[in-house]
């Protein structure tokens, strides 16, 4: 058995809301292996988003331990966290979050800039990724000239820019119609087939048909 790519041990996280401390994660433990296809499901307010933020190294945990690819990332500095986000994790959001001032290739190149990939390699790599997610030849379009599906395909290509092991997708089809959403989910299926680990955070039941494992979070605790 290879070492798990993600291992959370007894994670606690609380937020101060006004004078009150609200405990959002109450001792979450989970293990995700390489090539896993996981959906973390739960109603809003269940601590789903907080878990996503911690998994994506956007937030630091109060107590517990987070092992990412065999490395303890529980207590790292800003620069180290940024480096891990840049190379090990790819984010896909419900609202795409593309940069309106850049065209498709420019958007895909952003993570490469922070990875200091040699400049001359970037356009070729971006073009290759755009083709892989089925963007055809719409390389020089700005986001406002793209359809929703095309925007999400761009966002997926951007998430893949530095070839990360893990793709974290937050409700990736939430803003798309059913047919387009299916197309997007197919891309994730292919990514898993190619050995990547995909983690969905969602409350939509249609993901169940695609993933291998479903974890349900309720009131800050994981029910498996």
């Amino acid at each position: 058995m290879p070492s798990p790519i993600v291992e959370l041990r007894n994670i606690h996280k609380s937020y101060l809301i006004g004078p009150r401390r609200l405990e959002v994660l109450k001792g979450v433990s989970l293990t995700i292996h390489r090539g896993d296809y996981v959906a973390i499901m739960g109603p809003s307010g269940s601590g789903k988003s907080s878990l996503l933020n911690i998994l994506g190294l956007l937030d630091v945990l109060d107590a517990g331990q987070y092992m990412l690819d065999g490395e303890d990332v529980s207590r790292l500095e800003d620069v180290e966290l940024a480096r891990h986000r840049n190379t090990k994790i790819g984010f896909v959001f419900q609202t795409f979050n593309l940069f309106p001032q850049y065209d498709v290739l420019g958007n895909i190149e952003v993570p490469m800039v922070y990875h200091s990939r040699p400049r001359h390699e970037r356009p070729d790599r971006a073009r290759e990724l755009a083709e892989r997610v089925g963007l055809g030849q719409r390389f020089d379009h700005k986001p406002n000239q793209l359809s929703g599906g095309e925007m999400q395909r761009t966002a997926i290509a951007r998430a893949l820019a530095n070839d990360p092991q893990i793709i974290l997708a937050d409700e990736p089809t939430g803003n798309l119609d059913e047919k387009t959403g299916k197309g997007i989910l197919t891309i994730f299926d292919e990514l898993v087939d190619n050995g990547r680990t995909v983690i969905f955070v969602t409350h939509a039941p249609e993901y169940r048909k695609h993933v291998k494992r479903v974890m349900t979070i309720h009131d800050g605790m994981l029910l498996c």
Partner: peptide, 16 residues
């Protein structure tokens, strides 16, 4: 702000 958040998610540190 949203762009800044997304850049951070994609690997920008505060200094960037």
């Amino acid at each position: 702000r949203k762009e800044i958040g997304m850049r951070r998610a994609l690997g920008a540190c505060r200094r960037d």
